[in-house]
Every structure is written in C-alpha cells, then in structure tokens.
C-alpha cells in the first residue's frame, strides 16, 4: 500500500483532482437546476407529480448504462460523464427541495402572505430559509452518491480515481483497487464533512437555537 502511494503520488493527486472536479461540476449543475425547479414545482402540484416520477425513473437506470448511452450522443471523456452524473444528482436535490418547501408550516406561509408579501417574497423570506436544512441534506446525499458513481466515469474515459480501480482489475493489482477505493471513500467523507459545515452556516440562526 505504501508502495502504491509512493510510486503513484503524482497520479494520485491528478486523479483525485479529476475525480473531485467531475463530481463538483455535476453537483453544482444539479443544484443550479434542481433547486429552482423544486421551488417552481411546489407552485404546480400536478406537474410536480409528473416531473418527480420522471426523475425517479431516471434514478433507477443503472449508472453504467447511462454512461454507456452517453457515448453515441456526446462521445467519450469528461463531458458525457458530467452529464450522466448531473442527471443522478437531480432527484435527491429536487425531491428534498420539493419536500422541504412543502413542509414549511402553512400557517407561516399564510402569515407572510397576509402581512402583504408577494409570492416571490414569500419564497425568499419564508419558504427557502425554513427549507434550507432539508434542501441541504438532499445536496449532501447527492454529493456522496456522485462521488462514488464518478468512479464508473473512468469507464468512458473521463479519468478520476476510477482509473486506479479499473487498472487494478485489468492488471490484477489489488493495491490499485484498494487504494482507489479508499481514496474515493475519503473524498466522499471529506465532501460530506464540508457540506455539513456549509449546512450549519446556511441554516438560519433562529432554527438552531434550542428552547
């Protein structure tokens, strides 16, 4: 194992970085699309049902299949990998945004409106701040998923820590397999840790105070 690290230190740093940014970009795209979409869906419950079922169907497709299906359309490399992973991040974030906003106490929403808030003000002043903990837990879940699935992206030439694992499999090198797996796990734990910190910061103070 020590040999694996010393012999491949440059590659480790490079692959970890690749792995990180493939995951980060997919997650970021997921957040940019899914949070606003979730907000809009809460205003149109009927469409919400349809959209949420479509995204959960997408979720059930095997990730390897999605990655493979990307090849005819966008070829191989990082772009198809990011697109495929992005699709995977959608559901947890969308779902949690939708649930988080819907679970905001109706009396509070009504209070806001009856004080004279517009719909948009209600979303930004009441609904989103109160839904942040739920939305953030969706993002954390997505982050962990996306980091572990990004391993498979190596299969379509996107690089990342998956390269170690696939090389290890091809060359019968257990060191590479285990080393790669451990690095992916560490990356996922680190992401979880950082996002938990961000969640803590983003949650309004009034929601954190105990009685």
């Amino acid at each position: 194992m020590i040999d694996f690290i010393t012999n491949n230190s440059d590659a480790i740093i490079q692959k970890t970085w690749e792995h990180f940014y493939i995951s980060a970009i997919s997650l970021l795209l997921g957040i940019i699309v899914a949070v606003p979409l979730g907000v809009i869906l809460t205003k149109t419950p009927r469409i919400a049902k349809i959209v949420l079922s479509i995204t959960s169907i997408l979720q059930t497709l095997p990730s390897l299949a999605i990655l493979a299906m990307m090849i005819p359309f966008v070829g191989i490399g990082k772009v198809p990998a990011i697109i495929a992973l992005f699709i995977y991040t959608l559901l947890p974030i969308l779902n949690n945004t939708y649930i988080g906003l819907n679970n905001v106490n109706r009396d509070l929403k009504a209070a806001g409106i009856s004080m004279g808030m517009t719909r948009v003000q209600s979303i930004f002043m009441v609904e989103l701040p109160l839904a942040i903990p739920v939305i953030m837990s969706g993002i954390r879940l997505s982050a962990v998923y996306v980091i572990s699935w990004a391993t498979l992206a190596s299969y379509i030439g996107a690089g990342g820590l998956g390269d170690f694992i696939f090389n290890g499999l091809n060359l019968y090198q257990p060191d590479f397999i285990i080393g790669g797996a451990i690095l992916v796990t560490l990356l996922a734990l680190l992401a979880e840790f950082i996002l938990a910190k961000i969640e803590r910061l983003a949650t309004p103070k009034g929601l954190k105070i105990e009685r």
């Binding site: 209070a111 806001g112 009856s114 004080m115 517009t118 009441v126 109160l130 009034g206 929601l207």
Partner: peptide
C-alpha cells in the same frame, strides 16, 4: 398586496417567523 400591508393581522397560531429575530418579526411589514 399593498392592501394587506396597510391592515394589521394577528393570527391564531402566533405565526412568528422562527428564522427571524424578534426585531425582524416586529418590523416585517
């Protein structure tokens, strides 16, 4: 919207915004 801002409203379930300080709650309108 502007009508509601000109009429005070006290609701049953108290309905203070939990994420806002008392100051922010009082000065919501």
């Amino acid at each position: 919207v502007s009508l509601r801002r000109s009429i005070g409203y006290v609701i049953q379930q108290i309905g203070l915004m939990p994420h806002m300080t008392i100051r922010e709650n009082i000065t919501l309108v």
